[in-house]
Design a binder for these strands. Sequence first.
DNA 1: GCGACACTACACCGTGCAGTGTAGAAGAGC
DNA 2: GCTCTTCTACACTGCACGGTGTAGTGTCGC
Lengths: 208, 208
Amino acid sequence: MPDTTALRPGSPAKRAAIIRAALEVFVREGYARASVDAIAEAAGVSKRTIYDYYGGKETLFLSAVRETAAAQAAAFGGLLDRTLGEVTDVAAALTAFGRAFATEMARSAERAAVMRLVIAEASHFPDLIHAEPRDRPVQSALAARLAELGEQGLLEIDDPLEAAEFLGVLVTGPVNNRSWYGTVHLDQEEIDRLAAAGVRVFLRAYGR
Amino acid sequence: MPDTTALRPGSPAKRAAIIRAALEVFVREGYARASVDAIAEAAGVSKRTIYDYYGGKETLFLSAVRETAAAQAAAFGGLLDRTLGEVTDVAAALTAFGRAFATEMARSAERAAVMRLVIAEASHFPDLIHAEPRDRPVQSALAARLAELGEQGLLEIDDPLEAAEFLGVLVTGPVNNRSWYGTVHLDQEEIDRLAAAGVRVFLRAYGR
DNA sequence: GCGACACTACACCGTGCAGTGTAGAAGAGC
DNA sequence: GCTCTTCTACACTGCACGGTGTAGTGTCGC
């Protein structure tokens, strides 16, 4: 099938506007409820243009999720550098990381919202699962950093990838449980408390 | 408004059949995609009967989720008794519990599927969130058991509720990450491995 | 046999939405 | 000025679905 043949290249700015609007509406309404008309209006673009650009609702959805996930993975690198760049006090550094990560999860809404969306639609869009290898980029970046801390003698890490996964669930799990993946608002104080508690457990298990 | 006035009491068997069918279709399709016609057919009942019994799609959805959640909370009590009833070897007992819990999460599909559904629809059905106080029944049952183990000197538990939450996320987090809350099949071997690893971390943090 | 009730089968309405076709405005390049 | 491309505005089709109304078919108690 001539898949992208008939699609218009279009301007990058307009593509970005459409993707941003699409993500917003998909996240707010869910895939099935979201209407292409609503997305078009939010993007300040005619519905016809969306079809010319992306071909259909499904393709648009996949593009929106994939591009956002990629952007988030990139942003996570920055968060890692900022909080776990050069570490002397492991506990303080990990707590800072945990708070930043949990906050991004519970408040920036976007990260959690995309996860929510993927969780909900995974069975209808098998591509989503294979295309986005879970949080692998994120997790392996964190694992690499933890491995370094292990080599510096600051932590006892035998399996960095496993340790990264556990740090992740310890920090974000309680937050996601309470916020329903970003649906319910948590105040910063609670987020900090939950993240700090998670890091404490992690340190008890992996500290020297 | 005369809410339940016009509704028919009906037979318990038929109510149960409708709820079961509704849950199945809602879980498979998501709320918006699920059609009342499909539910009626799956339940072996006419569409009219569903409306006479439950009044509408929203009410039916809420009933299905709530009843299922309640049943699962009750079943969890049994799982607790079976695995953490009388404990001599903490590590073995907790591992057995972790495996059973993770398996129920990843395979029985129902538990994870309901969570997926609630995560996806929470923003459209605020009642879901307040009516089902997260996993509180489950979590506090587990907390009580952990507190006992602490008093027996088998674990070092200062905050049982917090410990229960962390045990929960350590055991189910990695499984849910990989299975997308039950969407992707995991084989039993991997589930066991993940759960055992989670329990190992828990024991490093909370063991004597 | 008879009335009351539960239920089904089915037709039907309104609506919202994916997707298309098209005419024309707005610009860009020549 | 002219043409070619991009985009919008808008009308329109087809369809799926929530919800209702109703006629008719059991079925149960008397």
